[in-house]
Structure formats: structure tokens, C-alpha cells
Design a protein around this nucleic acid. Structure first.
Lengths: 216, 216
DNA sequence: ATATAGTTTAACCATTTGGTTAAATTATAC
DNA sequence: GTATAATTTAACCAAATGGTTAAACTATAT
């Protein structure tokens, strides 16, 4: 017998535990997270963690999987293909901005896992390679810029360099604002100034990429 | 009575512990690092950790301080001021590349601390603000680009945006190679290909910045 | 109403952990 | 040679930790 109707209906204790785990891992990382704290956040007995997941490590893997799903779903929703490559770049920036606005804590856990060596992320990426819109085989975004390059609208270059240059000019700033935003006050930078700076980043990035990548 | 001659001469047990601690913190983060493991790495009795440093947290703070010093010293060594801004950008990229080549593990711990909220880094930055070459008060790099902007060689823009656009196009790739380099093989990317890609990054970055930032 | 399956809990366990201390050892000062 | 200070160690400690289990509770099937 599978899940009871009761559990199906309200999303289940397992999901509660999983989201509580995400919160705890985001805050303290794998080693710093405490199983009792996860249970506390989920308002369940600690033994339940091991009932639904076999171990702390399993919970961590499922947590990463959940985050990965959310991000892939959002990025995969990019379907429009504007004629103007700058417009496409803007859409990509907006997609990332929206992800890190809505799920800002997720990036923390991803970066944490990267720092740990990315074993689990590598597995996820490998298993889901063809879902990543930047993959060179069937990734919509990759193929879009390849086409634009063929049309002579973009300089000849490795498309990965283009994508990296685009994304890294924006993502770290969104990330830094989220993670270090409260530290800005130490340096006399108000929240308003910081938000303005982040907004400017998008414009500067598009400008740099427009001049730096497009053919004239 | 201060340190004995013996201790002064060979750099001391305290330094041995500190460097062992850096290794352990880099590998496992603050929560994952074990004091017994630090003692093992330093080949000393665990009690000595608390003899020289009052607590694990203190060791961690000293470790970050040590890393911060190394990076500030290297960045501070940038003194040349070439007439061509692209040349200056290249020097900056090379400086970062050299830091992450020589002390690649340091960036891991810095990123780890950023993810933790950066409390300790914020204090370090605040205490050493005027030593950071990008600080707007007396930072050589900041003032250099300000001057070039005045000379009309660079478009009018927030210099921080310029510096961020420059640095983030390169640093994450050096970082990723270091941290995830061994994962590349999972995706059919050899070490040679990866290193070539990283080298190309510098060229692409300079090209993007040259076209995207300089005035024509 | 009863049997069975799934879920949940209180209590427990062995191990790990950061930190401490008295004693021993080594270095230094005189 | 001796007294003192610094350094180092083995042994220890209380608390925390991930994980387990028997029993109780709830949901479902008949």
C-alpha cells in the first residue's frame, strides 16, 4: 500500500521533512546541520527522518535533487526566441534574477555543494544533461546563440564563453546581495543603494555584452 | 618571556597548527573540521590547539586572517600603471590567476565563509578597507580606472561595475577548475581541454571588456 | 468490529566531539 | 646546578550526535 490519502492530500510528512532539511542545510551546510534540528523544523520526531530517508546523507541528496528540479524547471520555461540576441540575453538574466529572488537560499546550498567538491551535483548534472538549456546537444539557449552566430549577428566565439560571460556578470551580485546584503551597512551602503546597484548590473551587463559580443 | 629561540627559528608550533587548520577547514568547512584532525595534521597533541588558540572558532578566525593577508599582499603588489587600460585589466586578471594558481584552496575557504554569511570576512574587510586596491578612497586600481575614465579612454560608468565585470568573468572559472576540475571527465572534458578553456577565458574576457567598456 | 499496514513516538545507544587538567618534559635565566 | 617558565602530553569529561527499536497510534481493508 502506497501513501495514504491523508498524506497525498496535504503533501505529506516526507515533504515537510525535506523542506525543513533544505532550510537547515542552507543555514549550516551538511556537517553543521543537525538531524534533531531538522526534525524540530519539520515538527516531527527525529526517528521519522530515518523512516522516510535512510540517513542524513540521503536527506541531503534528496534536498539537492529538489533544488535542482526547481531551477531546471524555471530555466526550462525559457521558450521564446527573439530575433534580437540582446533581448535573449535579457530574458536569461531575468530568468536567473527571478530564480534567485524567489529561491535565494537555494544558490547558497548549491555553492556549498560546489565547494564540497560537487560530487552530488555532478551526478545530478550528468543524469539531467539534456534538460539543461545550455547543453550543446539539444539545449535551446545554446542552439539559439549558435544560430545567431551563423547568421552573423554575433562574433565567432565559443558559445560557452558567451554564456559564462553573460551569467557570471549578474549571478554573483544577486548571490552576494542575498548572502552578504546585511554586511553592506558596515561599509555605509544602504539597502536602497545596494538594490540600485544590482539593478544597474543588469543594464551594464547587457551594455558590455552588446558592445563586447555582437557584431557591428 | 616570549617565544623561545627554538620556536622563533622553525616558525613555531603555532604556525604548524594554523596551516594544518587551514587544510582541514578548506576540506571540511568550520563545522566539518575536527580538532583532533587538525592536531593530527600538525602532528601535535590536541590540547596544544587550546594552549595557543582559545577555541576552534579562534583557530578559524586566525586561519581566515592568514589567508586574507596572503591575498592582500599579492593584490597590493600590483603597482604598474600602463597607459593602456586593457593592459591594466590583463595585469589584474594575471594577478588573480596567480593567486588562485598558487593558493587555490584559499578561495574555497573564502567562498565557504561567504556562504556562512561572511561575518568574519566583513570584519576583516572593514579593518583593512584602505589596503584593498579597489577601495574608492585610495585604492590604486580604482583610482587608475577613474583617471582613465576622465581621460576619455573608458565609457562613463560606475567603476565598481567595470571591476566586477572584469573579475567575475575570470575568477569563477579558475575557482570551478580547481574545485570541480576532476568532475569534468564525467562530461567528456579532458584536463587539457579544460585548461585550454580557462586560458581562452582570459582572452575572451579582455576582448569583451575591450569592446564592451573602452571608448572608441 | 477486527486485522493489518503505515506512521509516529519516547527512550535509548555507541560513538564522537570540543575542551580541560595534572603531570611530565624541555627551554631558559641566573 | 637549580629554579622557573613555556611547552607538551595522556587521560579524562560532559554534551552532542546520528541512528535504532519496541511500542503506541492512526489509517485502511474486509
Amino acid at each position: 500500500m502506497g501513501k495514504t490519502l491523508k498524506k497525498e492530500k496535504d503533501g505529506g510528512t516526507k515533504d515537510k521533512i525535506l523542506h525543513a532539511a533544505i532550510e537547515e542545510f542552507v543555514a549550516y551546510g551538511y556537517y553543521g546541520a543537525r538531524t534533531q534540528k531538522i526534525a524540530d523544523r519539520a515538527k516531527v520526531n527525529k526517528a521519522l527522518l530515518h523512516y522516510y530517508f535512510s540517513s542524513k546523507e540521503k536527506i541531503y541528496e534528496e534536498a539537492l535533487k529538489t533544488i535542482f528540479e526547481v531551477i531546471m524547471t524555471k530555466l526550462g520555461a525559457l521558450t521564446n526566441e527573439p530575433d534580437d540576441p540582446v533581448e535573449m540575453m535579457e530574458m536569461i538574466i531575468d530568468a536567473y534574477a527571478e530564480i534567485f529572488q524567489t529561491h535565494s537560499q537555494y544558490l547558497k546550498l548549491i555553492m556549498y555543494e560546489v565547494i564540497r567538491g560537487g560530487d552530488k551535483l555532478a551526478v545530478l548534472f550528468k543524469e539531467n544533461l539534456l534538460r539543461i538549456p545550455m547543453n550543446p546537444i539539444n539545449g535551446k539557449i545554446y542552439l539559439y546563440f549558435k544560430k545567431k552566430m551563423k547568421e552573423g549577428k554575433i562574433r565567432k566565439m565559443n558559445i560557452f564563453h558567451l554564456l559564462i560571460s553573460l551569467i557570471v556578470q549578474v549571478v554573483p551580485v544577486y548571490f552576494a546581495r542575498e548572502v552578504l546584503g546585511d554586511k553592506a551597512k558596515l561599509f555605509g551602503i544602504s539597502g536602497v543603494v545596494l538594490n540600485t546597484f544590482v539593478k544597474e548590473r543588469k543594464l551594464v551587463t547587457l551594455e558590455v555584452m552588446k558592445n563586447g559580443v555582437l557584431k557591428k
